[in-house]
Design a protein around this nucleic acid. Sequence first.
DNA 1: GTGAAAGCGCTAACAC
DNA 2: GTGTTAGCGCTTTCAC
Lengths: 354, 354
Amino acid sequence: MTRKSEDTSRSTIRDVAARAGVSASTVSRVLGGVYPVSATTRTRVLRAVREMDYVADARAKAIAGVGTPTLAFVLEDITGPSFALMAHGVEREATRLGHLCLVCSTEGDARHEVEFVEMMRAQRAAAVILVGGGADTVEYRDRTRRMADSLASAGSRLVLCGRPPLGPGAPVTVIEYDNEGGAYALVAYVLAQGHHRVLFLGGKPDHTTAQGRERGYLAAHRARGLEPDPELVLHGDFTRDSGHRLMRQVLERGLEFTAVVAATDMVAAGALTALHEAGLSVPDDVSLAGYDDIPFARDLHPALTTVHVPYEELGRLAVRTALGREPNTPDEHLLLGTHVVVRNSVAAVEEAAA
Amino acid sequence: MTRKSEDTSRSTIRDVAARAGVSASTVSRVLGGVYPVSATTRTRVLRAVREMDYVADARAKAIAGVGTPTLAFVLEDITGPSFALMAHGVEREATRLGHLCLVCSTEGDARHEVEFVEMMRAQRAAAVILVGGGADTVEYRDRTRRMADSLASAGSRLVLCGRPPLGPGAPVTVIEYDNEGGAYALVAYVLAQGHHRVLFLGGKPDHTTAQGRERGYLAAHRARGLEPDPELVLHGDFTRDSGHRLMRQVLERGLEFTAVVAATDMVAAGALTALHEAGLSVPDDVSLAGYDDIPFARDLHPALTTVHVPYEELGRLAVRTALGREPNTPDEHLLLGTHVVVRNSVAAVEEAAA
DNA sequence: GTGAAAGCGCTAACAC
DNA sequence: GTGTTAGCGCTTTCAC
């Protein structure tokens, strides 16, 4: 019925061997590559392989010790632009290095995370890359440490991307980018434009990424001898909706400010829309800046001033270092730099009325 | 040196058995679940398992017939918002159904695609989902047909998402969304606002998705007794940059039009920016519409009128139907509906001067 | 150059 | 209940 093979079940190496009139080992050898096999046998085997459309079972090969290595990537939600960028970097580098790439979404649930890591350990993944910040609680450290240890004891390795590092000695690699430094530079820039009251639309208070950015915000103020008004720093999450909601509330409350820096470009996007909805013009009425430099940032109107995070590079680096190290080496900590991208959403304040 | 296990290499079921003082099968049984094992033995085994932090090798289980099934998702670039949405749907549904999810980026290279499919076949993936349109050439059909056949003959199944269907009888499932219908409805809406010269920023001329949308554009005109000016339909690709470049060129050439519909929200985003850069206001000076309804569409300014495509649902549906069918059933063709989402980027034309 | 046999880590059929 | 044996699909000694 089917066109090229009458047998419905997948054929094994023995089937091929039978058809070629040789032994299984011979088939294995010609398929394997560089083992000496006579030319005529080789062609006969190859013909059989072609005729049966045979591919060796990768799992069986793996178990026999010659499998395609696998790498796992677990994140919260691939839909976030920065996650997608990292995923892309991971995937590209993984395939470049001849690895398969398994992906799991946790939907932000820590239990799923643990389950996934367990599955990846069962899959004998060469490394598992855990992405996305969170709270740095002792529960987090314990849980993650446990994952790191079991991965390491299974000859694998855990990589933390943009996540709080564990205590010293844990068999993990952590790769972060400079949240505080980036936010510092960005806010310093905004302040230098003459703004004095700049609103900060932050993330969850216990989220380390959010904290780092908030610290940068604070530090930049203090470096100028300013003490930021606590009323100006708000908390939400990293979504577009959070930015939209927060901005609307602020506008209703009639808080006074001339600039807003958002913890995330997504948050900035939501805030921008809220600003527009309120009839305010950016940057004429209020300046706005984001963080992440997602591709869309430049198509916002006005184009968003933000801080660039090399997400794709981060992903690539994650797999490179994960694959390049011995499982049990204790923690390595990489910090990638970020830099401000000035576009059109932040303006200098015109007059100093105060 | 490590904390919980002194042995560096992963332990096998036999190691656990030895430590618990039982046979390997017994360990297998307690881990397996519902096979009768005496309580004391069970606890002893479980303790050994815990102490050694043992997890059974999934590949070995698979080969023995009780593995976690795997599903593969191959796309061009996970970075595209609509791809990311689909990927998310696929991933969620796959894990809901207890499958692991392998992902591969082809970077648009057909050879990579074939290679990936081959690898997935070797992995004995339960199904492979191929995403993203392309040219409907005989080369495409042959190549894809070949992939479908070999997958089917290996007990797996090919799913085409938003791709040209193969000839009849191929063992594939194709899931599409209504490009022509969506574009038709959208353009009809734009036309109904009084626009007569609407620019179409299309994709590659041989890309079936682009063609479908272009057909809708044309059909909507004809339904109103209009014959669209050929000068008004432009070709590029589905990227933001394409939209930006095309729009700029059009503006330089001084083409006359009052509305533009882009083949993609990304294209629309680029076009919008170009429009802004030229000092034009949307929708006051020119109306603009997109296609896809990516999350960002509503944060563009003005919020983009577009057509909604249920990408995430598409992904979920893809895995559900892929997993729910027998490998060799010939083609099934699902067409998902789309609908126009009216936001603020299209205005009615004020006066009829002509 | 090629085949037979052992073994990878697991489960399942078959004893006892 | 539990151990022994065979077998999953492959690779790799080890003979010849």
